[in-house]
Amino acid sequence: MFTIGKLADAAGTTTDTIRFYEREGLLRPAGRSGSSYRLYDQEAVTRLRFVRHAQACGFTLAEVRDLLALRQREGACCGDVRTQALEKQRQLQAQIRTLQAMSATLDHLIADCTEVTSPIADCPIVAAFDAALTTQGFPDGPQGAAQARRGSMTLKARRVPG
């Protein structure tokens, strides 16, 4: 049996993390000592490592909870977990595409900002940030920044394929 501190050491985490996972229903002590210390068994170490690894792969705590529930469900199979992993991978790929689009937009804005000693009022980056964005897109790079400087910014939504 492990105390909370020993469990934290065994799993490479902190006692605060363990307490948080307990509050979230992802982990529970196997019992209590005579001094009312939480006590954990080897299953808690395995479960804690599972939670941490799933999170490192991008799963949210709610998704981890679902994966843990699958382990307990009668008739569950590897295909059920694979389905969830494929969905997570699809979500991560969409996030990557979104981040790449954001980075490309910043590349254009930075490239358009050539007069580094200009007053802030003339900064194309600030002008682009001041411009209204659609909920689905970004300014059209240097063209959008140039239009923003001229005061006639019209933004086109750049859809990220889902």
Rank of each mutant, 00 (worst) to 15 (best):
L26K: 04
D16Q: 11
P119F: 01
G79L: 06
T135K: 05
R158M: 06
Q143V: 12
T117P: 02
C77S: 13
Q91A: 11
R149K: 08
T135I: 00
D66K: 11
R73P: 00
T134R: 02
T17A: 14
I4R: 01
Q72E: 14
D16H: 12
C57V: 08
P119I: 03
A157T: 15
R49G: 13
T117D: 12
F59C: 11
I110K: 11
D41C: 11
Y37F: 12
A8H: 12
D140E: 08
I4A: 03
D9E: 15
Q136N: 06
Q147P: 03
L133S: 10
A69N: 13
S35G: 13
V51N: 05
T3Q: 00
L7S: 04
C123P: 02
D66P: 11
K156P: 13
L48Y: 00
Q93E: 15
I120A: 09
Q143R: 15
A131I: 00
G25D: 09
K6W: 01
F20Y: 15
R149Q: 10
G12R: 04
D16C: 02
M102G: 00
T114A: 15
Q93W: 04
L99E: 01
L106F: 14
A127G: 07
F2D: 02
T60Q: 09
E74W: 07
F20M: 15
V116N: 02
Q91M: 06
G137M: 05
D66F: 12
L7W: 07
L70M: 07
A62R: 13
L27R: 00
G58H: 14
Q100W: 00
E43A: 13
C78R: 06
Q93F: 06
L109T: 11
G144Y: 08
A104K: 04
A127V: 00
Q91V: 05
E63H: 02
G79D: 15
Q95F: 00
T83G: 09
I4Q: 02
T83N: 04
E63G: 10
A131R: 00
L48C: 05
S33K: 03
S152D: 10
A94H: 10
T83F: 04
I96L: 13
L92A: 09
F129K: 14
I120Y: 04
Q143P: 02
P142I: 14
E43D: 00
M153K: 05
K156Y: 10
A104T: 07
F129L: 15
A69G: 12
T135W: 06
L39A: 10
S118V: 03
A69C: 03
V126N: 13
T15A: 14
L99Y: 07
C123N: 09
E22C: 10
V81N: 05
Q95V: 00
A104Q: 08
V126P: 04
R38D: 03
V160M: 03
C77K: 14
A111C: 11
I96R: 15
A145F: 04
A157M: 09
L68Y: 09
